[in-house]
Simulated scan of single mutants.
Amino acid sequence: MTTVQSVDRAALILEIIARDGEAGVGRIAKELGVHQSTASRLVAALEGHDLVERRAEGAPVQLGVGILRLAAATRPRLELTAQAGPVCEALAEELGETVNLAVYRSGAAVNLYQAQGARTVALHNWVGDATVLHATSSGKMLLAHLPEPQREAVLDGALERFTEHTVVDPRALRSQLVEVARDGWAVAEEEFEEGLNAVAAAIHGPEGDVLAALSAAGPTYRLGHDRLPEVASRVREAAQEISHRLGHREEPGSALAAE
Rank of each mutant, 00 (worst) to 15 (best):
V110D: 03
L95V: 12
E241L: 15
V199T: 13
V121G: 01
I203L: 04
A130N: 10
R245M: 06
T166Y: 02
A258F: 02
A258E: 15
A39H: 12
G205M: 08
G218S: 08
V187P: 05
R227Y: 03
R151K: 13
A239R: 05
A153C: 06
A108T: 10
L46I: 09
L214K: 03
E89S: 10
L51M: 15
L133E: 11
T163W: 00
A201F: 01
D226M: 11
A217E: 10
V180N: 03
T220Q: 10
M141E: 09
L155A: 13
G85M: 02
G208V: 11
E57R: 15
H134R: 04
V231G: 02
L78D: 05
L101C: 04
A115E: 07
A23L: 02
T131P: 01
H35Y: 06
V231D: 03
A122H: 07
L123T: 09
R249D: 05
P252K: 05
A202I: 08
E89F: 01
G208D: 12
Y221R: 07
A144N: 06
A200C: 03
E152K: 05
I16C: 06
V187G: 00
V231A: 00
V4Q: 13
Q5D: 12
V34M: 02
P86R: 02
E15Q: 15
R77D: 07
N100A: 01
R236E: 12
D8L: 10
R9P: 07
H225Q: 06
I16W: 10
R222Q: 13
L146K: 08
V4Y: 07
A73G: 09
L123Y: 03
R236Y: 08
T38V: 15
A102Q: 04
D226F: 08
V7D: 14
Y104G: 01
Q36H: 14
A198G: 01
L95Y: 06
A90W: 07
P229W: 00
G21A: 09
L246D: 11
G139C: 09
A188V: 01
R161F: 00
V25W: 00
H49L: 14
L196E: 05
G184R: 08
L12W: 13
V187T: 12
G21R: 08
V121I: 12
